[in-house]
Amino acid sequence: MANFEPKIVAFLCNWCSYTGADLAGTSRMKYAHNIRIIRVMCSGRVDPTFVLKSLREGADGVLICGCHPGDCHYHEGNYKCLRRYEFIKQYLTEMGIDKKRIRLDWISASEGKQFAELADAMTEQVAELGPCRVRSIMENVT
């Protein structure tokens, strides 16, 4: 769709990906404005309910970023997140929501450029899918 601007909620872990996003900022890299960042200490903190809540409140996509495998500040939190991510994708698909609306990626503290590129890629990915109708459906129902 031509002018559809998706809203994307992003969960970034404090030690790696949030720092990477900060680096993108200090380096003045430009990327799509559609990302809204929420800081968590570890990507392992990301509960599937957060993803569902985001879609319920009107987000069109959810991005989760953690440290690269093996580099998690808390040793294994990102692996837990990875397991949950697989589950979430399956769950969404069964709910009739396109699993491409959610994405997990690894961004390290020095990867500002990669974060900017990811933000753009995610925005494009979700824009192609069009608006997520979860909220509008739920509001009509309730």
Binding site: V40, M41, G44, R45, D47, P48, Y74, G77, K80, R84
Partner: peptide, 10 residues
């Protein structure tokens, strides 16, 4: 405890 939060989401 280091406060990673993994238990909280589990």
């Amino acid at each position: 405890c280091k406060g990673c939060g993994t238990c909280g989401s589990t």
